[in-house]
Amino acid sequence: MFWLDGQTTSAIAAPKSSKESDIVTITDIEQKHLIGHLGQPLGKIIVISGVVRQEQSGAKSSPRDVLSVESVNDRPLAQPVTIEFNLFMTAQVAKPILGQSFKYIGYETGGFTGIPQDAFKFVPAVATTGHRFNTFFQVLQEELDVVKTKSDLIQFNNRRVQIIGRYVSGTKPAPAITGDIEFKGNYITAKIVLEDGTEIPIFPTYNKQSLRSPEEAEAYNGKIVKVVGKISSDRLNSEKITLNTFDGIWQYQAGF
């Protein structure tokens, strides 16, 4: 009941939906597990693997990299699931590369994105997506084989790995066979020294990518680091293994 111009009036109850079973309340979400696109509860730590693909969400949007998930917790999915991703701010994980396979530890999470169409009855319209619930995979760690000794090098040759060792840089005149023929001055190169003393050059010297930046050398020289990349035999010396791709470098923290 409520008062209107001095008269008592009966309140009109809000009409009930013909499909009350379709209604989900905040309390429901708080008390129950919300299952995501990957078939696991949102927020649950899981391991996913698959391939990095590209997806275009609209005719005018630019293609973006997404994860095409083929297995969850080492169990193959009936069909690959495409999902957006985000690298956790402190995660020591290299940015995914299009076409590259991955194996990540993390969790699916999400929330509402976009703007309700009725909002533009009150404010000027802007370019946006519809108001909807969207999920993404929060990447915490990448699962890769670890190289710490020479025996690991032999075992994982020609594979993408994470290398743990001491970063050692040096300078010398630009090598005559380097791909960077216009370079002048001292040429900074670096290597990762494993715990048994084995040295892994960051790219062979005839590759111009072997030139390291002064900023990188200053930040990591003499420190134990984690480097992610692909190791393979040097084409000029089959007994020497070098780092032939360089996806990322971080100061090593045991346990992470």
Rank of each mutant, 00 (worst) to 15 (best):
D180L: 09
G106W: 02
K121S: 03
F112R: 00
Y107A: 07
K184A: 12
E215D: 08
Q40C: 06
G99L: 06
M89D: 01
E215T: 02
K150P: 09
L98Q: 09
D28Q: 15
E215Y: 04
V225T: 05
I12Y: 14
T8A: 10
Q117R: 04
P80H: 03
L153T: 13
I164D: 13
E142N: 05
T242Q: 05
N221H: 06
D196H: 12
K226C: 10
R159G: 04
T90W: 11
P96L: 00
L140T: 01
N158W: 14
A13E: 13
E182L: 14
Q100E: 09
I224H: 09
P124E: 07
L140V: 03
P124F: 11
Q138A: 09
G50C: 08
F183V: 00
F85G: 09
A174K: 08
E84F: 13
P201G: 07
Q54F: 05
W3T: 10
E70Y: 09
F2R: 14
Y206F: 14
R53Q: 04
I249E: 05
I115D: 03
K121C: 03
I46W: 01
A91Q: 01
V47A: 13
R166W: 03
H37W: 04
K172C: 09
P116T: 04
S21I: 10
G110Y: 08
T171V: 10
N157E: 13
V51C: 10
K191S: 11
I200R: 01
A11N: 11
